[in-house]
Design a protein around this nucleic acid. Sequence first.
DNA 1: GTACATAAACATACAGCGTATGGAAAGGAG
DNA 2: CTCCTTTCCATACGCTGTATGTTTATGTAC
Lengths: 219, 219
Amino acid sequence: MGEERLSREAILTTALRIVDDEGIDALTMRRLAATLEVNPMSLYHHLPNKAAVLAGLAELVFAGLELPDPGDAVPWQEQLKDAARAYRNALRAHPNLALQVLSDTSAVSEVVVVVVEPFYRALDRGGLSPRQIFEAVNTIIDFIHGFALGETSVRSETFDLAPDLLTRVQDLPAGKAPTLARVVGELGPEGLAYDFDSGFESGLTVLTAGIAAGVRRGR
Amino acid sequence: MGEERLSREAILTTALRIVDDEGIDALTMRRLAATLEVNPMSLYHHLPNKAAVLAGLAELVFAGLELPDPGDAVPWQEQLKDAARAYRNALRAHPNLALQVLSDTSAVSEVVVVVVEPFYRALDRGGLSPRQIFEAVNTIIDFIHGFALGETSVRSETFDLAPDLLTRVQDLPAGKAPTLARVVGELGPEGLAYDFDSGFESGLTVLTAGIAAGVRRGR
DNA sequence: GTACATAAACATACAGCGTATGGAAAGGAG
DNA sequence: CTCCTTTCCATACGCTGTATGTTTATGTAC
């Protein structure tokens, strides 16, 4: 049977569709084979095992990743933020896969090499030393990973933390977390309504300011 | 059989030991029951299903979490860093469980309420507005989560990224990532040797500097 | 002491999983 | 035509979580 009804690429494409549509738990070898109208064991001719399928998915997602480089026309801080936004968007593109990608060490390091150049470009223009650049990029990428972790393990676009957090804080033994209680109280329910986009932006603001401060201080 | 040979607590304690010793994959209901010298189905009298076991583990880990509050003797920046270090250490205490905890939304929000007060205390002393505090804490916690994600999905205490990253960078098509290539080259292999502790510290430095900058600017 | 209610532990069984093994089928090469 | 290689399929094994029904041991009431 030299004719190939199956291919690594076709398998991964179908797998990605299953994950996108029904979540990571819906992806089983049997289910994948059924969708391709093929015997489960046929998959093992193109991919050695299920772990390879998952790794392949991570690869597939980031293979098509194009980072729009804003160029050197804008200030380096803005260039840095744009790189961060693009990377966050890449992690958001397949939310059901994000956790898998993030927790797969090899996928992360693969991705990081691909994605990291715009960060380095921006920070190099900012006048940081190689060591500073290296550490700043690690920091900002860790932030994006942590943010994506919270963002992708939740359904709604604008997730309202308010009721939950307010309730929890009020249920705490009095005096256990006084500052938290007071600050949350001053914010009020509408102040606590959490929007991922603006949360991400304020994180970027803090990070770029911190990096810039390190440069100014000449550290 | 009114006598209880089993209890929720005993089950979770044993489960935690299995996870710590042999990893999250080694924790199956059958294995857990065998370790307790009990029939698998007996577990279901104390916990409704396996997900409840995992959630219980997250709870268990953070129930014993005591955050040493450095008090107000030190500058608020140092107080903030200490809170961050303590939280990171909590996530490191059971590395095999960290990813599970981080990816479990309810565990995270549980944890965050418990853990967050020292952060709020420090930033309140720093003179930030409620809104600034809220956003700064989210940012720093996202950073810690992302850092922990990278840190706990890797074995060795001091993981040497150098050979991998260097190789990858050198294998890239020439001109694809020129800044990255140059900076990495200037750093050299010994400059790339990555130490998690100092990586975490430099992240904290950037973050506190960025937060302080926001305060100074009166935003 | 004896009957009963209750809770805990057990035995069995089922559907689903990843995948090892070995055989069938369909081309291309000599 | 024969053989070889590659792809695909059928079967099966050991494992998973857990639904279902039964047995057993205890605390309580009479």
